[in-house]
Design a protein around this nucleic acid. Sequence first.
DNA 1: TCAATAAATGAATTTATATTCACATCACAA
DNA 2: TTGTGATGTGAATATAAATTCATTTATTGA
Lengths: 204, 204
Amino acid sequence: MIVINRKERDKQLRRADILKAAEHVFASKGYYEATIQDIAQKAQYGTGTVYLYFKDKNALYFSLLEEKIRSLTDAIRGRVEEAKGSRKKLEVFIQESLDYFEKNQDFFKLYILEKNSVQLIMSKRIASSAVEYGTEYMEKIISLAQEERVVREDCKPSELTDILVSILGSFVLNWINKESKRAGTLKDKAGLIFNIFLNGVAKK
Amino acid sequence: MIVINRKERDKQLRRADILKAAEHVFASKGYYEATIQDIAQKAQYGTGTVYLYFKDKNALYFSLLEEKIRSLTDAIRGRVEEAKGSRKKLEVFIQESLDYFEKNQDFFKLYILEKNSVQLIMSKRIASSAVEYGTEYMEKIISLAQEERVVREDCKPSELTDILVSILGSFVLNWINKESKRAGTLKDKAGLIFNIFLNGVAKK
DNA sequence: TCAATAAATGAATTTATATTCACATCACAA
DNA sequence: TTGTGATGTGAATATAAATTCATTTATTGA
């Protein structure tokens, strides 16, 4: 029995090796220009090995996306739950998102690329469910904020969510690209983003 | 002489046929899943004909992007120029962008997909110059708005531009996807977007 | 009408990768 | 130590699409 568990655990570790390599390769080249060879090499396995753990390239890609999105959402959810009141929840949501993306830059690239292509090109891409899972929770917070009269009511929660997600995205993207001279951490931007989201860019 | 001009004009028309077909196919399938055959078929030419007008698939794609982005920017620039004061210019910029995207939905899809991948994956993708050309002008308006103390000064014009572009993008995307039940025209959203950009989403 | 030239065509070729599979290697139990 | 099943491997195969090019078709000017 112990043997089986041990083996099972090792298997999961090797699977994780491949996912990690895939994350990096997909993020730097994009889905189509990333080859299975690239990924296998990065993970230090032979090409064929990848197929022992994933049905095909597509399955590998979506397993990756799905698992990372789940981990992102779960990471954020805990902290937000603790915060009291929609205002505070929003603030924490922003902070935690930034923190997570700062630590998972490769994932961010996949997420932002996928978010648009899923919404646009749809196709067979099953990931939409995972992407939705990611924003669904945000929508609840916004709904709450509307109930508490913190946030304007002339937009649907989903629209407001999209706005916040895009603003967040634009800051993360800027920060990631500015790898040379970066003022501080990404999380430092949280206050600014919160403020812009709530009060806009007008000079007060 | 007349003959040559006539010929030259016809040639441009055929080139435009192909670009138009390419726009639609690339927008619905994405770059990699769009095939030259698809495009040729859509344009009602044979496969080989495409190569008489464009060096290869990549050149076709970037010619398309480049020309559309130029046309977008030129369309907007005129109207914005007329408007007096940064506040009004911003307002017009938003209106005209929405109007253009409403009329060029396929192009919007390409633009939004490309914007992120250019910023992220860079690679050989030359289009970055064209994409920059598109936002460069917006930045000037924002700079002006900062000088006129209309807009907060704790962000760089480029950051504020990115924010506005993302907010715009999220509205356009929503509108495009909601093809079934759409309240009104996309341009109707201009006031709301302007207001959110300047004053945020807080309940006033 | 008829060469001669230009343009269009799509089948054949090339190229690039995903995927498979026969064989090699490893880990472990006896 | 060795036999056995589980894993790993990368060269060989399959597939799909980009690109080319010999041939066909259209256009033009005399």
